[in-house]
Amino acid sequence: MREIEYAAPTSVDDAIAALAGAGVCRPFAGGTDLLVQMRSVPPSEQKWVDIKRIPEMTSIALDASGLRLGAAASCWEVSQHKGLRETFPGLVEAAELIGSIQIQNRATVGGNVCNASPAADTVPALIAVGADCVIAGPDGRRTVPVAEFVTGPGTTQLGDNELLVELVVPPVAARTADAYLRFSPRGEMDIAVVGAGVSVTLASDGTCTAARVALGAVGPTAFGVPAAADALVGTSLDETALERAAAASRDAANPIDDKRGTVTYRRTVAGVLTRRAVQLAASRATERSS
């Protein structure tokens, strides 16, 4: 029997208290993964803690100290937030790629991270901008980088009584921009064959002074590719540097064969997307410097 107990607390503390109850307790935000799971494998008894009535968890705060993105803010809110698109276009692009308008209105970036699909679009985009997860639990709060938060397909660092409260991103440095590109057979309503998130910083003469490259859907979790970033730093992002970064991504990719693509295909696409995402991020960074 799919018996569910439901609670809708209005503060993080109350949510933590609700999650501390006996049995399986699950935070519930947009429900676009949880409800589908419930129907395919009806749980025995579970308590669902709806976190959408907690103001701290649905807010999006963007200011000089960076971004604090509430874990229960919907992808639609993320895509409609004007300042956010200007500041982190890659992150917004990733959030916008998730599902239909109906899904966008419910699904959350926090949920995308917690669902921990290897192909989650927002995870590489978050790694590229250096995002951290703020986790609340009975003993207070702790912060872990997004890349460490996701530990495997469908698994995260979250303990039973813990809650992902928000994602925090440091402020964007000067002449810095991000980009996220995904390859999938359909442009919309599809799952990544490969995803690539990139952030680059350019000096005033166009030299790349810092970079981050992250890949999704080519391993059990999304991951950063430091070798690709190293290939870019100190260069003018010329053809040689782009090819070296692409090669580093192909080497780092560790995909599976499945109906969406073979290992060889996914490796190749990882290189192509890395190159294109670097070029897109660089053109944005250049616009920002003018």
Binding site: Y6, A8, G30, G31, T32, L35, V36, R39, D50, K52, W76, G99, S100, I101, Q102, I103, N105, R106
Partner: peptide, 25 residues
Amino acid sequence: TGDCGACSVLLDGRLVCGCLVLAIE
């Protein structure tokens, strides 16, 4: 499962799949 949209309704003016919203919400 949120794929077909036949259940589309507006919830506080937002387009959602009725099958992916709990009635209690």
